[in-house]
């Protein structure tokens, strides 16, 4: 699956982040999914990284020559699914 890692290929389609941008973030010092997220916004869109997390991990692994278990998962934060402020505001909490 490592073929065709062109820099212009999309990785995070929610935030439209490419392979090239992720490689650049690694050059700037990103070493995990969170580091990539902070620098590029990859994984911060509608799907919260459910689609691209593994792709980002694969690029990290390739660029850093790491084993899969050395690349941690992203840090999930609430809300883990998209939700409107309206729904939050109407909460049935006293």
């Amino acid at each position: 699956m490592s073929q065709n890692y062109d820099d212009d290929m999309l990785v995070c389609r929610c935030e439209e982040i490419t392979v090239g941008e992720i490689r650049e973030a690694i050059r700037q010092g990103a070493r995990d999914v969170t580091g990539i997220k902070r620098r590029t916004r990859a994984g911060m869109g509608l799907c919260q990284g459910r689609t691209c997390e593994k792709l980002v991990q694969a690029i990290l692994r390739q660029e850093l020559c790491n084993a899969p278990e050395e690349i941690s998962a992203a840090t999930p934060r609430p809300p883990v699914r998209p939700i409107t402020f309206g729904a939050l505001g109407r909460g049935e909490v006293e």
Binding site: P78, R81, G86, A87, R90, G91, E92, V93
Partner: peptide, 16 residues
């Protein structure tokens, strides 16, 4: 657990 209930056609609410 924070739970959002509802669909796009109905008002969504969040309950704990």
């Amino acid at each position: 657990i924070a739970v959002e209930t509802g669909t796009d056609d109905a008002e969504k609410i969040v309950r704990v």
